[in-house]
Simulated assay, not measured.
Amino acid sequence: MTDPAGPRATPTPPTSAAVARLAGVSRATVSYVLNGQAEGRVGARTQARVRAAAEELGYVPHAAARTLRAGRGSIVLLAAPADTVPAFGPLFTRFLAGFQTALHGLGYTGVLHGAPAASPMAAARAWAELRPAAVLALHGPPLDAAAVDLLHRAGTAAVLTHGPSAPPGAHALLLDQREAGLRAGAHLLAGGRRRIGVVRPADPGLADFAGARLAGVREAAAGRPGAEVRPLDLEPTEESAARLAARWPGLGLDGMFAYNDEYAMLLMRALQDAGHTVGTGPDEIGVVGADDLLLARLLRPRLTSVRAEITPPDRIAALVAALIRDPDRAPAVHRLGTFRVEARESG
């Protein structure tokens, strides 16, 4: 419906000059107070007067202008396409919440950047437009030296990538997904399993993580007489799980490691519906998931799961802040944690 009074004008936001006039101080004083630089420069009463004036006017500092003055902003950008974040599971969600809270306490804002990019340079250009203080490339095309150099020239102090290594000028954050598969494979083999299926999400966006876990299971099986590892692609639907369960007798598998607990529970239910028994016995199918969800412990049989022991997010936030303050620190590999198996009744 058209407004009879005509289009409404966008209100002009209050400026620091307006705050200065209302408080009876200079704009420089307003800047010191509202940017946390008043200590030793502005008295307590004047600070209180400036804050009261800013609150009365509804004044909020302009982040873009502050970025231009400082050369970089307070954004810590976490690069992970939005359509793949739910598939990372609750472990990532919990980490992200704690990490953003810790960053806020250190004076930074964590921003999840979900725009996909076709190449490392395209990704770096999209991120550089925001003038972030740091970039954590958690997912997507691996960065190369040229992309890292572009970010640094745009004012980004710290670039961190996932994986066992990083391009020149970047730090590496490592939560070795291969180790998750290695632990799961070793556990199943120790329980007498020799023909192990590794369930991978059909989503190509998770191929890097799933491929590393598959490689870990294969590493565990290497040199074991009679050991066989077979990749199994699965859609996160009951229909896909039922089709795989129907094929199970022909596959001849006696163990299964799933990408995460949700995939494990989906296929375990389908196997049980098809008349198979899941458990630790010699004639049962051993099943291992990953992430150690609470729901895994409520199943019957209770689900064995690979648990990630993650470095607390506040420590990672402190690391990022330290790298921003010291951009010339030599690049290194920083471990995010390790994995262990929580053995239960499913395998």
Rank of each mutant, 00 (worst) to 15 (best):
Arg131Cys: 08
Gly163Ala: 09
Glu179Leu: 07
Ala186Thr: 15
Leu173Tyr: 10
Glu179Gln: 12
Asp144Leu: 09
Ala166Tyr: 05
Ala128Thr: 07
Pro141Asp: 12
His187Gln: 10
Leu151Ser: 12
Pro164Asp: 14
Pro132Phe: 07
Asp144Ile: 13
Ser165Ala: 15
Ala172Ile: 02
Ala146Leu: 13
Leu143Ile: 12
Leu130Tyr: 12
Ser165Asp: 15
Arg178Ser: 08
His171Ile: 12
Leu151Glu: 10
Ala180Gly: 02
Pro142Glu: 13
Asp149Gln: 15
Asp144Met: 11
Leu160Ala: 13
Ala184Gln: 02
Gly169Leu: 10
Ala190Tyr: 01
Ala157His: 14
Gly169Arg: 11
Ala126Gly: 13
Arg125Phe: 01
Gly140Ser: 10
Leu151Asp: 12
Ala190Cys: 01
Ala184Val: 04
Arg131Phe: 01
Asp144Asn: 14
Pro141His: 12
Leu160Glu: 09
Leu188Asp: 01
Asp176Met: 00
Ala184Glu: 04
Pro132Arg: 05
Ala154Cys: 06
Ala133Phe: 02
Ala184His: 00
Gly181Pro: 07
Ala154Lys: 08
Leu136Asp: 06
His171Glu: 11
Ala137His: 13
Ala124Asn: 06
Ala128Ser: 12
Leu138Arg: 09
Leu189Tyr: 02
His162Lys: 05
Ala170Gln: 02
Leu174Cys: 05
Leu174Lys: 01
Ala154Thr: 03
Ala172Met: 03
Thr156Tyr: 05
Pro141Thr: 15
Val148Met: 08
Thr156Arg: 03
Gly163Leu: 06
Ala145Met: 12
Gly155Arg: 04
Ala126Glu: 12
Gly155Glu: 05
Ala170Ile: 00
Leu138Phe: 11
Thr156Val: 13
Ala157Leu: 09
Ala133Trp: 01
His162Ala: 14
His187Pro: 02
Asp144Phe: 04
Pro164Gly: 15
Asp149Lys: 03
Ala180Cys: 06
Ala172Val: 05
Leu173Cys: 04
Asp149Glu: 15
Arg183Ala: 10
Ala166Thr: 04
Leu151Trp: 04
Gln177Met: 06
Arg178Gln: 14
Ala126Lys: 12
Leu182Pro: 00
Arg131Glu: 01
Glu179Ala: 13
Ser165Lys: 08
Ala133Gly: 13
Ala157Tyr: 06
Leu150Pro: 11
His171Lys: 07
Ala180Met: 03
Ala157Ser: 14
Pro167His: 03
Ala158Ser: 13
Ala146Thr: 15
Gly140Val: 14
Ala145Asp: 15
Gly163Ser: 11
Ala128Arg: 11
Gly163Tyr: 07
Pro141Met: 10
Ala128Glu: 08
Ala147Phe: 10
Ala126Thr: 12
Ala124Tyr: 05
Ala133His: 07
Pro164Tyr: 02
Leu189Asn: 02
Leu189Phe: 01
Gly155Trp: 02
Gly155His: 04
Leu188Arg: 00
Ala186Val: 06
Glu179Ile: 06
His171Thr: 11
Pro167Asp: 06
Gly155Ser: 08
Arg153Asn: 08
Gly163Cys: 08
Asp176Ala: 07
Leu143Gln: 11
